[in-house]
Each structure stands twice: as structure tokens, then as C-alpha cells.
Design a protein around this nucleic acid. Structure first.
Lengths: 213, 213
DNA sequence: CCTACCGATCGGTAGG
DNA sequence: CCTACCGATCGGTAGG
């Protein structure tokens, strides 16, 4: 049954709320839970966050999150998956753009920094720092997405090397760059010092060194 | 009947021990607790590790760690402090050596990598990834040590810049390097791929770029 | 350092 | 999504 059919005549019977299908409101509440959980998991860790913390933050009673998620683990998986799907989409858009190597890399770094540092962006930091709390089954599913993400970065590094902007495009170099960028989550304070754009600028200069001049 | 899961209690040889002074044995047991706690905190996180886990790992009963430490928090602080004191000593030794800038930097990177990646070296990773679990009072005391550590790195970066090996020795550059090196704790597998020495080599080349050639 | 224990809290559930 | 609840577990303690 189509969810929205503009051309069908109005139903003869007065509309009643569907009792079986998942309502729009349910989906919104679920999204609320994922969003506040991301923030709490980032601030206090997965083990340091209780289901009651999460329920409080969205104005539910302590047992109610389990109407939307089977377990606390499932909430964690949802947070990570949402962050990675969004991050992957952005990465692919940039990788497939027609920009030249240096510019493409710059945009990639800036976008990743925004993903890690901008307000309300807690999904990827949770992915980075709560990975060990995720069950092996959930990990396996998310690794598939993560591999695609990594592959796109590796492609851009290969472009940089062809352009003579870096001397090595090894996996180790990618991981070192990734570490440098991801670690900003630990020390960067919004509104103090550099803006995210300025930070991206300095990071790119550092990564490409004097080779790019 | 088969529910005899837990480790058997330590042999109970009643033994005379000094009642007032802290015996050598007490100090050894305390060191044992710190060492196994470092490993457990790294593997499962502070909140994911129970005092019972720690007691089991050294062959004590669940209440006994509290003979050596007032709280679980105090164990965490001891782990971090021990790691930082050792790391700071090594860093100062290198910074004050007569090596030239590039060589000094290389040794610094390699030593830090060993601190993060070598077997049984769990203290600094715990410091890096469980910082938020430490109470503000403990944090304040440890920040003093951490500042000294950072200052030594900054000194070496200034040397690198004077030698023309890097184009910027800003704090941001130090933090990016630190992130790249620290993040290895998340992906490096001992005995697979590069050795720690080889990794140090590649990291230094990446950090100094083509400028050093 | 062990025995024996406690109050608090936790993830999760039954039934509406 | 709430009410009412449970079994398990946790950090920590008294007393020896």
C-alpha cells in the first residue's frame, strides 16, 4: 500500500490512525532518542550513560526507550550508523566532484572536521570513541560502511600523490592523517581560537608540507 | 554444583605482617593492582571495568582492592599518573640530549609510539581515552604533569622550525602530530605489518614532508 | 586481605 | 508510551 497517493479519491470512512504501522510520530521520537543518545554517549560514554539518562533527556519514563529499541546496544548502533551514512554520502559527493586534487583534499578535510567538531555532530565521535562498546554483530555491519569511507580517502590520497603533493599515499599515511583530524575532537573548543575553516587550512598545510609550494 | 566459576581465593597462609608501616609486599600488591587495572581500563573502559574484575585479575576478593585504594577513581588516577611520570622522564631525557633537531624528533616520536603501542604499555592510552572519567580534582593534579610534557614537545618543534624542517611550529601543529601518533593506539596491531620502528620512520617522514630532503 | 553484607542503581519486562 | 516492578550487579564498608 503506497504511503501517499495524491490522485486517489478521499476514503469514504473517516480517517483513523493506523494501529499497526509505525506512525510518523513514532519515527520522530525514535530520531529524538538517537540524537540525544549521541550527545550523551559522547559526553559520558556508552557505559556511563544510563537508559534513564536518555529517557529523561527526551521527556520519557525510564522504560519507554524500549518501545523504540530492543536494547541499549541497538541505540548505540543506530547512532553510529546514522553518522556513518551521512559522512559517507558527503565524502562520496566530494570524491566524485571535479575539483583538482589539492582543492578536493581541502574540502574533504574541512568536511570531516565539521563532522567531528560542529555543534550537534556527535555521531562520528561516538563511532570513534565507543567502538569497543559495540557488539561484534553490530560492528560487522558497520565495518562495511567504514571500508567504503576509507576507500574514498585513499582514492583522494592517490590523486594527491599523482599531483606530486605528497610523497607517500600509503595506508599508514591515511591513518596518520585520520588520527590528526579525529583527535581534534579531544582538544578543539568551539568559539575559542581558530575557526573550523582556519583549522582545516592549517591542517592541509601541515599534511602537504612544503611539497605543495 | 558446577557453579564454582570464580577464581579460587588466594592461599590463606596467615602471616605476620607489620601493622603500621606499609610493607614491601603491600607496595607490590598495589603495583599489581595498578598494572592490571591499566590493562582492563584500556580494554573495557573505566566504567566497563568492575572492581571485581580487577580483584579477580590479581587473585584478590572483591572488597580487597579497597585496602590499597580508597575508591575506584583513585586507581584510575594512579594509572594515569604512573604513565605520565614515566613518559615525562623519557621525554625530558630526549629533549635535553645533544642530538640534532631531526634525530631528536625521530627519537621522540619513536619513544612515544612505544609508550602507546608496546606490550604492557597501557598507562598512556588510558590517560588519552579515559580522561573524562577522571574527577576534576584528579584532573587538575595531572594537568600539571601534562603541561610539562607538552612544553617539551613544543621545544623540539621550535628546533625543527629553526632547522627549516617544518614551516610552522604552532600549537595546532603539535596537536595534529600528537593526534596522528596517539591514534595509532586504535589501529596498530603488534606483529602485523610495520614494526614500531618502521612506523616511527614513516611518521617522521610524513610529518617533515619533502621539506627535510 | 577475607567474610559477609548493604543500599543504590541498572537494563529490561509485563501488562495496559 | 506509562506504571510498576524484578533480578543482577555494582562500589563500597564493618569487623576481624
Amino acid at each position: 500500500m503506497p504511503t501517499k497517493t495524491a490522485t486517489t479519491p478521499a476514503p469514504r470512512t473517516p480517517r483513523k490512525r493506523p494501529l499497526v504501522t509505525v506512525s510518523e510520530e513514532d519515527r520522530n521520537r525514535r530520531a529524538d532518542l538517537v540524537r540525544v543518545s549521541a550527545r550523551l554517549f559522547r559526553e559520558k560514554g556508552f557505559d556511563g550513560t544510563t537508559v534513564r539518562d536518555i529517557a529523561d533527556a527526551v521527556g520519557m519514563r525510564s522504560g519507554s526507550p524500549f518501545y523504540h529499541f530492543k536494547t541499549k546496544q541497538d541505540i548505540l548502533a543506530a547512532v553510529m550508523e546514522e553518522g556513518l551514512v551521512a559522512g559517507l554520502a558527503a565524502t562520496e559527493r566530494i570524491a566524485d566532484s571535479g575539483l583538482d586534487a589539492r582543492e578536493k583534499f581541502h574540502v574533504l578535510v574541512r568536511t570531516h572536521l565539521e563532522t567531528v567538531l560542529a555543534e550537534g555532530q556527535d555521531f562520528i565521535p561516538v563511532l570513534l570513541y565507543e567502538w569497543r562498546s559495540l557488539s561484534p554483530e553490530h560492528q560487522a555491519r558497520i565495518i562495511t560502511l567504514k571500508d567504503k569511507y576509507d576507500a574514498r580517502w585513499q582514492d583522494v590520497l592517490a590523486e594527491l600523490k599523482r599531483a606530486g603533493l605528497i610523497t607517500s599515499d600509503s595506508k599508514v599515511v591515511r591513518l596518520l592523517m585520520f588520527g590528526a583530524v579525529n583527535y581534534t575532537a579531544q582538544w578543539y573548543k568551539r568559539g575559542k581560537g581558530l575557526s573550523i575553516d582556519q583549522l582545516a587550512e592549517e591542517a592541509v598545510e601541515f599534511f602537504l608540507g612544503a611539497a605543495g609550494e
